[in-house]
C-alpha cells in the first residue's frame, strides 16, 4: 500500500492534464455556446477558428522572437496573443459581414447556416494550410516547467514525480481570469445583459430596442478572442498541429451541449466534464492499482477502460447519455 505515490500518480496523469485540457475546452465551448445563443447555429468552423487564431499567435510569436523580445520565464506567445486576437476578430467580423449576415437577413434555417459554416471551415482550413502548412509547429519558449517531475521526487522523496508544465499553469490562470471577466461582462454591463436578453428571447429583445447587429458583433468578437486564446493555449500545451483542431469540434460541441447549449456556465462545466471523462476513461490504471494493492497482487493487464484512440468517442457517448437523462443539458439550456 502506498497511497501517497498513488495520489501523486493520479495528479500527474489525470488531474493536472484534465484541468488544463478542460480549461481549453471550456474556452472553446464558450465560443460555440455564444454563437449558438445569439446566432442560433452550431458553428462547424469553430475548430478551424481556434486553429486560425493559434496560427496568427505563432506568426506573431516568431516575429517577436526575431526582434529579440522575451518575457522569460513566460512564453513569448502570451505577448503575441494581443495582436493575434485583433487579427482573428477582424477576420471573424469580415466573415460575418460577407457570409452570415446575408442568411440572418433572410432568416434562413439553422441547417443553411451550418452549411455556410462548413464553407467557412473549408476556407479557413485552406488558409491555414496555405499560410503555415500542415506540419507540426512548436512555438513555446521560456521556462518549460513550473515543477519538474524529477525535482518533485527529490523534494518529497516519493518514487512518483509530479510535473506541471508552464503552459498548464498559464492555461488555468488565463481561463480563470477570462471566465471571471466574461461573467462580469454578461452579468453587470448593459451590453452583456443585452446579449443575454437577445439569446433568451430574440423577438422581445427587438421590442425592447436591442440592436441585433450589435449583439451579434459582440458575440463574434468575444468568440474570436476566446477561440484564439484557447487555440494558442492548446497549441502551447500539446504543440500546434492544424489538423488536430478539427478533431476538437466534437468535444467542443459535446461540452457546449452537455452543459446546456446557450448557457455560458454550462460550457465551462461541460468542458471539464468532457475533459475529465476523456482522460479518466482512457487512462491505464495498472500502476495506480499496483500502489494500492498488497504485494504480490499486482494486476496483469493495463486496466484501461478504453483505448486512447477512442477518446473522441468518449465525449460523444457522454453527450448521448446526458441528453437522454436531461435533454436540455446539465444547466438547462435552450429547449429547441
Amino acid at each position: 500500500m502506498d497511497i501517497l505515490n498513488a495520489l501523486v500518480l493520479l495528479f500527474n496523469y489525470i488531474i493536472v492534464p484534465s484541468v488544463a485540457y478542460g480549461s481549453q475546452l471550456a474556452l472553446g465551448a464558450l465560443g460555440v455556446t455564444l454563437v449558438y445563443g445569439t446566432l442560433r447555429f452550431a458553428n462547424f468552423a469553430h475548430g478551424e477558428l481556434m486553429a486560425f487564431g493559434a496560427m496568427i499567435t505563432i506568426l506573431c510569436t516568431w516575429w517577436l522572437q526575431s526582434l529579440g523580445v522575451s518575457i522569460a520565464p513566460l512564453p513569448t506567445a502570451l505577448l503575441a496573443l494581443g495582436p493575434a486576437i485583433a487579427v482573428t476578430v477582424a477576420i471573424v467580423l469580415i466573415t460575418d459581414r460577407t457570409i452570415y449576415r446575408f442568411y440572418r437577413e433572410k432568416r434562413s434555417a439553422p441547417a443553411i447556416y451550418i452549411i455556410a459554416s462548413i464553407g467557412v471551415m473549408f476556407v479557413m482550413n485552406g488558409l491555414i494550410r496555405f499560410i503555415i502548412g500542415p506540419s507540426d509547429r512548436a512555438f513555446g519558449d521560456g521556462q518549460r516547467y513550473i515543477i519538474k517531475a524529477q525535482d518533485f521526487r527529490d523534494m518529497t522523496g516519493l518514487s512518483e514525480g509530479l510535473g506541471i508544465k508552464t503552459s498548464q499553469g498559464i492555461t488555468v490562470l488565463v481561463t480563470l481570469f477570462l471566465v471571471a471577466a466574461l461573467f462580469w461582462f454578461l452579468q453587470k454591463t448593459r451590453t452583456g445583459k443585452s446579449m443575454r436578453a437577445y439569446a433568451d428571447n430574440r423577438d422581445l429583445a427587438l421590442l425592447s430596442g436591442i440592436n441585433p447587429e450589435r449583439v451579434v458583433m459582440y458575440s463574434w468578437i468575444i468568440t474570436a478572442a476566446l477561440a484564439t486564446i484557447a487555440g494558442a493555449l492548446y497549441g502551447l500545451d500539446k504543440s500546434f498541429k492544424p489538423f488536430t483542431y478539427f478533431q476538437l469540434l466534437l468535444p467542443l460541441f459535446a461540452a457546449a451541449i452537455v452543459g446546456g447549449i446557450g448557457k455560458p456556465v454550462g460550457a465551462i462545466v461541460g468542458g471539464f466534464v468532457i475533459a475529465f471523462s476523456e482522460v479518466t476513461i482512457t487512462y491505464p490504471y495498472k500502476k495506480f492499482l499496483t500502489y494500492l494493492m498488497p504485494e504480490g497482487m499486482q494486476p496483469s493487464g493495463l486496466l484501461q477502460l478504453l483505448s486512447t484512440d477512442y477518446k473522441f468517442a468518449v465525449s460523444f457517448i457522454i453527450l448521448v447519455i446526458v441528453l437522454m437523462v436531461t435533454p436540455t443539458g446539465i444547466m438547462k439550456g435552450k429547449t429547441v
Binding site: 443553411i112 455556410a116 464553407g119 471551415m121 473549408f122 476556407v123 482550413n125 485552406g126 494550410r129
Partner: peptide, 17 residues
C-alpha cells in the same frame, strides 16, 4: 497543393450565396 481546400470553400460559399 492545399489551394484546393480554399477553392472548395469559396465555391461552396459562392454557390450558396
Amino acid at each position: 497543393q492545399h489551394m484546393r481546400v480554399l477553392v472548395m470553400g469559396l465555391v461552396l460559399l459562392t454557390v450558396m450565396r
